[in-house]
């Protein structure tokens, strides 16, 4: 098996299928929705796509420094582990809703979880 995780998930089409479901879940969760600006939904959607692409093991330009810089203003506003867990939970639920196999979900959540310290600026 030489296919990457990204390929096994379905690549860009999988990201496209997941992004609106994921973004909707995040916005409907009052404990975290304030961290997701809705004045420019297209821009937010692009950010969610970049995040999902990274979590799916796809080609991305995210590096730790970018994640830190991007989330620093949110950490100042109180972003903490509970919010990170909530987002991870919505990612999990999104993938289940799409019928993704458990083992692949596990791999995605492991990649996403690996960003925790950068996102929370620790």
């Amino acid at each position: 098996m030489t296919d990457t995780l990204y390929d096994r998930l379905g690549g860009e089409a999988a990201v496209e299928a997941a992004v609106d479901i994921f973004y909707r879940k995040v916005l409907s969760d009052p404990s975290i929705s304030d961290f997701f600006d809705t004045t420019d939904m297209d821009e937010q959607r692009n950010k969610q796509k970049a995040f999902l692409t990274m979590a799916f093991g796809g080609p991305n330009e995210y590096i730790g420094k970018d994640l830190r810089e991007a989330h620093a203003p949110l950490v100042e506003k109180g972003l903490n582990d509970s919010h990170f867990d909530a987002v991870a939970g919505h990612l999990d639920a999104t993938l289940r809703e799409l019928g993704v196999a458990d083992e692949l979900i596990g791999e995605v959540l492991a990649i996403a979880g690996g960003t925790r310290d950068d996102v929370l600026n620790r």
């Binding site: 609106d20 973004y23 909707r24 916005l27 409907s28 809705t38 004045t39 939904m41 297209d42 959607r45």
Partner: peptide
């Protein structure tokens, strides 16, 4: 427009 856009999205329309 901006408020309705969000409402439409939450109601299930894709962006």
């Amino acid at each position: 427009v901006n408020a309705a856009r969000k409402t439409a999205f939450m109601a299930g329309a894709t962006l």
